[in-house]
């Protein structure tokens, strides 16, 4: 039979754990809100960029930019966006399963986030580069990733670039997704992607920017030159959004995981308290029994 002191000690330690997980849950909730706000505040930029791109599309040839060019070949570069830390449920496991299912012999990898780097190096995959993006995400941190893959693609070292990240559906569900980034589909250019869930569905979005009116825009020095500038910007923005999407997923997954951890800890405390009381009562009963037996013996 366990003694009361042991049980008291266990209750105390479980309570401490519950406090920690509770705090982590609250922190994750506020970080998730921040990541969502950040995605929303970039919407205006996306709208303006899309206006320019849509106008450019009419003026330039379909394959006017090398980043739009479809090339034959299987060599693929996959950007894997994972979290840096654990304690976020099955988020990384689900994503990495999808990544390893899809990737073949011809795939090389670029990782953002420590978990992806660890898994891929353990699997001895062809890991080309690893980028560190801290929280909160800054556009300047994400830009090197975009420039790196653009260079690789333009140098012909890969024929396709995909991004594996976790799409934020809502607070309770996140789905692993693999999206093609390069070559850019000319139809997608200048259009909202379907997965941009975090930044949408807000009522106070700024109005869509107005077009040039009659006659269209004048492009200086030439539509092609402007396209040269606009396409990389578009690409970098896409990656930035995907990283934000992953971050929002990470924090919401962590929030849910920590909530259930806190609930479990509280249940455990309840059970232990019950046991503690039982043991205590049994001890008292025992003592009374002993006293009365002793008194009986003295009479």
């Amino acid at each position: 039979m366990p003694n009361t002191r042991d049980i008291r000690r266990r209750i105390k330690s479980v309570k401490n754990t519950a406090q920690i997980t509770k705090a982590m849950q609250l922190v994750a909730a506020s970080k998730m809100k921040k990541a969502q706000d950040q995605a929303t505040s970039g919407r205006h930029y996306a709208d303006l960029l899309n206006t320019v791109l849509n106008n450019l599309k009419e003026l330039t040839e379909e394959d006017a930019h090398p980043l739009l060019e479809t090339r034959a070949g299987d060599r693929e570069l996959m950007v894997v966006v994972t979290t840096d830390k654990g304690l976020c449920g099955a988020l990384n496991t689900n994503l990495m399963r999808k990544v390893t299912d899809q990737g073949g012999e011809q795939t090389s990898y670029v990782t953002v986030g420590a978990k992806g780097r660890q898994t891929l190096s353990r699997l001895k995959r062809d890991l080309v580069a690893d980028f560190v993006v801290h929280d909160p995400v800054h556009f300047a941190d994400v830009k090197p990733v975009g420039n790196f893959i653009m260079d690789r693609f333009l140098a012909g070292e890969c024929n396709r670039v995909t991004v594996a990240f976790t799409n934020f559906v809502n607070t309770l569900s996140q789905e692993p997704l693999i999206e093609t980034l390069l070559p850019i589909n000319p139809i997608d250019l200048g259009r909202d992607r379907e997965f941009l869930g975090v930044g949408q569905k807000e009522e106070d979005l700024p109005e869509k920017p107005e077009g040039p009116g009659e006659g269209g825009f004048l492009f200086e020095p030439s539509p092609e030159k402007v396209l040269d500038m606009a396409v990389p910007q578009y690409l970098n923005y896409e990656i930035y959004q995907m990283v934000l999407e992953s971050r929002a997923s990470e924090h919401s997954a962590r929030m849910v995981a920590m909530k259930s951890a806190t609930d479990n800890a509280n249940d455990l405390v309840k059970d232990l308290t019950l046991e503690y009381n039982k043991v205590r009562q049994a001890a008292i009963t025992n003592e009374l029994l002993e006293i009365s037996t002793a008194m009986k013996a003295l009479e």
Partner: peptide
Amino acid sequence: GEGLIEITGTTVSVLTDL
């Protein structure tokens, strides 16, 4: 920083990374 300038009749929009 670098970026794009978009001028319509009533608005000048500057899209930049910094």
